[in-house]
Design a protein around this nucleic acid. Structure first.
Lengths: 211, 211, 211, 211
DNA sequence: AATGAATGAGCCTTCATTCAT
DNA sequence: GATGAATGAAGGCTCATTCAT
């Protein structure tokens, strides 16, 4: 993948277009127009429209994967702490790779191409990881699930992935604040979410300077 | 809109195609093929592809609206009971208008057409209703939110709307069971969701034959 | 008065365009223009431009193949008679499938597509058949070759296939007359071709009413 | 036309590409890639793609023309000897300007450009020369044609020009051997070609050291 | 109601060509 | 002389849409 001058502009324009109008509806012409070049010129950077989508999505996908691995290796923390990390991580990626991460979420399922199989598989791993985490919490007594772990995982992931419809980055601190609110909600629900906020604060937190 | 014999078949085929491949990717040809007619013949039933989408989406949308009105008028029940009703109602609609309801969710945002403005406005009303419900719960002390009501509403709605990615109808009882699990999770979170399950069962429940 | 089906017109137009300008240079627009339709309308008949080429070429190719089989099974005639048949057959096909047969010859080699592999293999069989025929003549003493049979076969085939650059159909009799002139030339060369013309006439000839 | 260092490499690469994929299918990018430069750089050497084709074709065309003039002025030799010279000459040019000479043959007809008119006219002169030679042979009694001289000329030229589909240079001696085989075949046909081989050898032959 | 055939607009993609560096 | 990056003009293909039958 070349990285000449306009490349990052094109990536950004493509991300925005894909986000706003969807892959199918976005045209290379409209993407080019955002950068000030003709549609044909985009082929100096990418081999096809789909490759452009892959390029947009690649960075958040890789980041997500890396964080996921990091989380899997974090065996020392409690389940709650690890869940908090997961949520913070997601919000961080949504923020850092905005709006590319949302393009990723939106097109994960829809795009048929075999080039996307890799990402679909990643998503399966992601779901499995969340499910395993919740199951572990249920086994250890930290959690008391109202359902199969799979259903609970789907609920939590839905809460997070739906953010594509309302989230916009507001800075590192505000974003982490938001993540922690969602975490508290997931942990204590509507009834005790407020209480969990305190609990959330009492958990060991390296991001806040704890050991 | 005429309602001749093949109309319902066409609606079903369109719903399935829109669901599986998205509005843009679905073609009138592929829809017609499911019913055994040619694409041109569809224009005996609808005036345009977009009208077909509207027709698919119309019934679940109206059902949702009706239920929403019913809920707004239910001032006698506790906030929790009303939330349970909301969740049950959504699952019921997902199930009854499957997959049309998911088409609605998926294309609510994306489709630019002014014809969809009505639905977007409906969605705004829906969000506002959920937010108001949670706010009322917070005021009354039933809930203890970890965040602004709006954020909590977004989380709950995300949990529900994300169901389009994993839900399939499994019969009235199993569906209500699922709804109640989600309700318990929303109420008590991961920590007390299991506990809330008992509480959920103790709430007055006309669907289960209570007063 | 719209015509019932334009397929044969399209085939003709495509054949002519492919012949005149070559496959790559011919455009669907120019082909459509010959028939009076737009380029997109051609896709009501064929799935791709290449399929159109295949359709153009299919009939002469199949005819050639059938004749080749017929010749292979004609074991009763002398080598010279069979060669005459081969040459007459080719000229007949050039004439009957004009200009499609020439499109076939021109694009046999050039088109990369796997769809053409079948035709390339046919061509190999054709060359092998001619070579075998000449080799048989050399063995039996009917012929006295100045070279390997393969080289002689290439020369004869070259003489015939080059006709694409100068031949136009002139009616059944004139065409057979021409075929027999070429046959006499192949048999007796420049020195005795005129003599072979008498010999050619003395060979048993069902086309001229002999036993 | 400048003649800097890479020029001959480019000419060779262009010749090979034009031969292998045809003028239309060959791209400046693929030609440049063979030499290790980018497509744009080719414009340091030529003004257009068509000029490049002309440059490729120029040398074999001029060589052919020169040989043709030489042949026309050779009034002392018999018709057979002059025909042998013609055939040897062609094979020599095919070999020496390989594959450029084949590019010439392939694109002579197809390319519309007025720049090619000169070559098309050359080809007409070539055909006329062959036809005149055969007619002279018929008049003098050396030949006994089975057809109009024009048809015989087309057959002979077809045999020769078709070589583009199978010939590859194999060294001066083997090439002349091949030329003489073709000559014998043209002279004596399949029946007496072998005999003509002896005759061909008995003809005065400066290339073999005769007077 | 359905078909067959056509339209027309739009999109992705290719490629010769240009030009500042 | 070469490069990188652009242009602009097609061309193939898709598809919603129309309409006579």
């Amino acid at each position: 993948m070349p990285r000449p001058s306009r490349w990052s502009e094109i990536l950004g324009a493509a991300g925005a277009e894909f986000r706003d109008r969807g892959y199918d509806n976005a045209t290379l012409e409209s993407i080019g127009a955002r950068v000030g070049i003709l549609k044909g010129s985009i082929y100096n950077y990418v081999g096809s429209k789909e490759e452009l989508l892959l390029a947009v999505v690649e960075q958040p996908a890789k980041a997500l994967l890396a964080e996921l691995d990091r989380l899997r290796d974090d065996t020392g923390s409690s389940v709650a702490v690890r869940l908090r990390e997961l949520i913070r991580m997601q919000v961080r990626i949504f923020s850092e790779y905005y709006p590319a991460a949302f393009v990723y979420l939106q097109h994960l399922v829809r795009v048929q191409s075999p080039a996307f199989a890799e990402f679909r598989e990643m998503d399966a791993r992601y779901m499995a990881a969340v499910e395993a985490l919740l199951a572990e919490g249920a086994r250890s007594g930290e959690f008391s699930l109202a359902s199969e772990p799979r259903t609970a995982a789907r609920a939590v992931v839905g809460m997070l992935d739906w953010m594509q419809h309302w989230f916009t980055p507001r800075g590192e601190d505000a974003d982490r604040e938001l993540a922690d609110e969602l975490f508290a909600l997931a942990l204590g629900g509507l009834v005790a979410g407020g209480g969990m906020r305190g609990l959330a604060r009492s958990l060991p937190d390296p991001d806040r300077g704890d050991a």
